[in-house]
Simulated assay, not measured.
Amino acid sequence: MSLPPIDWTDATAEEALPQEKPLPPWEDPSLSILPALCSTLTGILRRPRSFFQTLPTTGGLGEPLGFALVVGTLGLLSSLIWQALLEGGLSESASGMLLTQTLRFLNTPKLIVGLFLLAPLLVAAGQFFLSICLTWAVRLTGPSETTFEAVFRVAAYAEAPMLACLIPLVGSLAAAVWGFWVLVIGLGQTFNLTVPKAIFALILSAVFQAMLLLFLLLLGGLFIFRGLSNFLFS
């Protein structure tokens, strides 16, 4: 019987080690911003399963947040611009009257300027708010050891379909539907969830978001009420 080679134990140990997942192009320090952005968007939008299969669940929040800020802010501002530009054309047709009246409040100049300035802050706050509630939901429907960092990274890169907001009229709706499906795929590939479980996790997350938002509104109303009471009756 022949003896194993001298480096047999070393080779076995190397094979037993888990292979590190490659960084997405956006986090690759060797790439400049524009090529990294285009390559990442291409990977998410064309091959979402492959992208999220190889997406590391660790590596920090800064790079994914930066990606979400770029794409999410561009999508949000595009929606506002199209609403402002198309309001006049819609109001000339009877079929667009209802939509025009619905968008009229959003098209006030002061509100639009304010949203332009606050868009990055709104995108960042939305990412953290979604990720907190989605972490709770994934822990209930999938692995209980799911980390906030892992969920945040998936949710941030799932912002890629916001580019569809560049398309007038139907862009916002397409971005919402497409983004929902990309997030379903991302949760499924990253946390080994079936499609029904991933969809249920998103529904559960929406419930958590509504409950948390209601709690914050009630808490804010309570502080305002106490402040007015102290001012009026002190």
Rank of each mutant, 00 (worst) to 15 (best):
M1V: 07
D7I: 10
L17C: 02
Q19V: 14
P24K: 07
E27T: 09
E27F: 09
S32Q: 14
L34V: 14
A36Y: 13
L37N: 03
T40L: 06
T42P: 00
G43N: 06
R47G: 00
F51R: 11
P56I: 02
T58M: 06
G62M: 01
G62P: 00
P64E: 06
V70S: 10
L74K: 02
G75C: 02
L77R: 13
S78P: 12
L86A: 04
L90T: 05
A94F: 04
A94H: 01
L98E: 15
T100S: 15
Q101A: 07
T102E: 13
L106T: 12
V113G: 08
G114R: 11
F116I: 10
A119Q: 00
P120M: 01
A124F: 11
F129Q: 04
F129H: 02
C133H: 05
S144K: 15
E145W: 05
E149P: 03
V151R: 01
A158K: 04
A160C: 07
L166I: 11
W181P: 01
Q189E: 15
T190L: 10
T190H: 08
F191N: 01
N192I: 06
T194L: 10
V195M: 09
L202R: 09
I203G: 11
L204E: 03
Q209M: 12
L212K: 02
L212M: 12
L216N: 00
I224M: 01
I224D: 00
N230K: 08
F231A: 14
